[in-house]
Design a binder for these strands. Structure first.
Lengths: 132, 132
DNA sequence: TATACCGGTTTCCTAAAGGAAACTAGTACC
DNA sequence: GGTACTAGTTTCCTTTAGGAAACCGGTATA
C-alpha cells in the first residue's frame, strides 16, 4: 500500500531526514551572508573591478544610497569587500572584493548563467501570452 | 590627477556603466525566482528526490507549514516544481522538481560548495574569538 | 471514541526590509 | 556666489516577510 520511502521517513537516495538536514546547513550559511535584494548584484558589479560608490549606484538601477551603504557595510563585516580611502584631494573612495569575496566567482557565474537562460524563458513565455 | 576610470565612468575591463547594468539583469531575474528564506533549501531538498509535505518540513528545521505551502506554490508557478496527487487511499501527495527545476543543480552545487567553505571559516573564526 | 498522522489554511501579530526625500560636509568648476 | 559632484547619513514611512498558534477535513490506529 505504501512504498518504502513513506514508511521509513527517508529521502530517496538513502539519506535519512537528519542527513538531509545536515546537507542544508551550508546552503543556509551561504544564504545568510548573501541575503538582501542587492548584495549579489553589488558583488557581481565588483567582480568587474574596483568601483566608487556612485559608480555602483549608477550601474544598479533602483539602488538607493541608503541601501548601498548598508549592503556595503555588511559585505565589509563579512570580509567579502574592502573600502579603500585614497587621500588624494578630493579623497576618492573605492570598493573592492577581497580575495575571499572573489571565491564567490563560480557561484556568481552560475547565477548569471542560469539567469540568462531563465530570462530567455520568461521573455519567450510573455511573447506567447501576447499572441493569445 | 584622476585616472581614466573615474573620468570616463567606466567599469575597469572596459565595460561602460550601461554594459554593467545589462550584465546585472540576468542575476536580478534569477534572484526574483529564488528569493525567500526557504526556497533554495526546499529546492535542495527536492534534488534528493520526490518528497511529501511533512517530509520536507521535517528536513528543514524552523520551516512552518505556512511558509512551506507558500514557497511550494511559488515554485509551482515558476515551473520549478510539480505537485503530484496519487489517488491512493489515503491520498498521498508528492512534490518533485521539474526538468527545468533540475537545471538549477549546478547553481545549488556551487551554493553548497561555497557554503561549506564559508561554514568552516565561520567556525574557525568563532574559535579564534573564543581564545582571546 | 480518543488519538495521531497528513496536507494544508487562517488569523493575528511583529520585526525587518526597503523606498523617498531631505540633508550634510567637502571639493571643484565657472 | 551659485551650481554640481562625491559619499554618504538621517528621518519618516509603507510594505513585506515571516513566525506562532489554532484550526480544518480526511484517514488510520488502538
Amino acid at each position: 500500500m505504501e512504498n518504502e520511502d513513506h514508511d521509513k521517513r527517508k529521502c530517496p537516495m538513502h539519506l535519512s531526514t537528519g542527513e538531509c538536514s545536515q546537507r542544508l546547513l551550508p546552503v543556509k550559511d551561504a544564504l545568510d551572508v548573501l541575503s538582501g535584494k542587492w548584495k549579489l548584484q553589488i558583488i557581481l558589479s565588483l567582480t568587474f573591478g574596483k568601483k566608487r560608490f556612485k559608480q555602483i549606484q549608477r550601474e544598479i538601477p533602483g539602488l538607493t544610497p541608503k541601501m548601498l551603504s548598508k549592503e556595503l557595510k555588511e559585505l565589509e563585516i563579512n570580509e567579502l569587500a574592502v573600502r579603500h580611502v585614497y587621500d588624494s584631494l578630493p579623497v576618492s573612495i573605492e570598493y573592492e572584493l577581497t580575495p575571499y569575496g572573489r571565491t564567490l566567482q563560480p557561484l556568481i557565474t552560475e547565477l548569471h548563467n542560469w539567469g540568462t537562460k531563465h530570462r530567455k524563458r520568461i521573455i519567450a513565455g510573455s511573447k506567447k501570452a501576447m499572441k493569445k
